[in-house]
Amino acid sequence: MGRYVLKRFGLMIITVWVIATLTFFLMHAIPGDPLSTDRGMPPEVRKNIEAKYHLDKPLMIQYAYYIKDLLHGDLGLSLKYKTRTVNSMLMNGLPASAKVGLLGMLIGVSVGIFLGIIAALNNKGFLDYLVIFIAILGMSVPSFVFASVYQYFIGVKLLWLPVAGWEGPKYLILPVASMATFYIASYARYMKTSMIEVMGSDYVVTAKSKGLSHTAVIIKHVLRNASVPIITFIGPSLATSIVGSFVIESIFGVPGIGKFFVDSVKQYDYTMILGTTLFTSILVVLGYFISDMLYGVVDPRIRLDK
C-alpha cells in the first residue's frame, strides 16, 4: 500500500510538471503581449518592466526562472496588479470560490445520488422518467442559463433573495443552487446507470437466492457496489468545485478566483493565467489521487500492495 501511494504521488508530481510546462509554452505561442494593452507606456518603462519579469530573456531562460519559482511555491507577480502576487490573489479569491463550489457540489452530489437511487428502484416507472428528465435538462442546459433563470425569478421577480453580491449567507443560496444543478443532473445519471448495472449482476441473483428481502439486497449488496464507479468522479468534482465556476461567479458577483481568472484572460495577464491554470490542475490531480485512495476503501480489489 505504502509503495502504491508513493508511486501515485510521484506520478502526480510529473503530471503537474507536464501541465505547467505545456501551459507555459502554449502561453508563449499565442500571439499577444502582456504589455501591449498599456498604449501610452514609454519605451524605457517598458524595458524596465520586461527586465523585472525576465521578458527580455530567451524563452528557455524564462522557463527556468518560472520552474525555479514554482519549486518555491511562488507563482509570480501579476502583470496587471503590479503590486500583488498571483499567490495572494488566488488566496484572496479562494474562500469565496470554495464556499460556493464545495457547498454546491456536496449538495448536488448528495441529491443527485439520492435521485439516481430512486430512479433505479423505479426503473421505467414515473419517478424514473422524472429523474431522467431532470438529468437531461441539467446536463444539456448550460449552467449560466440556470443561474440567470434563478436570478431572474427568485431574485428579480419574487424578491426572495438578493440578485447578486457578497454580504452574507443569503447571498450564497442562488450561486450554490446554480452550482448544485449541474452536479444533481450528472450524479443522478451516473448513480442510476451504476445501480441498474449492479442490479443485473450475478451476485445480486446470488444474494436474492439466499432469501434476503429486496430491501436487504439493495442495501447490503447493491449500494456499495454501485457507488464504486461514482467515487471516480467525486475526487475531480471536489477539486474543480473548489476553484468554483467562473461563469456563476461573474453572474452573481462572487469575489472568487473565477473573476480574477476571467479578468486576467481578457488582459493577457499571463502570470495570472499560468498560476490559475496550474492551481486548478494541481487540485484536479489531487482529486484523482483522493478518488483512487477512496476507491481502495470501498472496493477491496483495488487495495493493492503493488
Binding site: 447490503k220 456499495r224 457496489n225
Partner: peptide
C-alpha cells in the same frame, strides 16, 4: 460462473 456470483466488496 463463480467469478461473478460472489459479491466482490463483501
Amino acid at each position: 460462473d463463480p467469478m461473478t456470483s460472489l459479491n466482490p466488496t463483501m
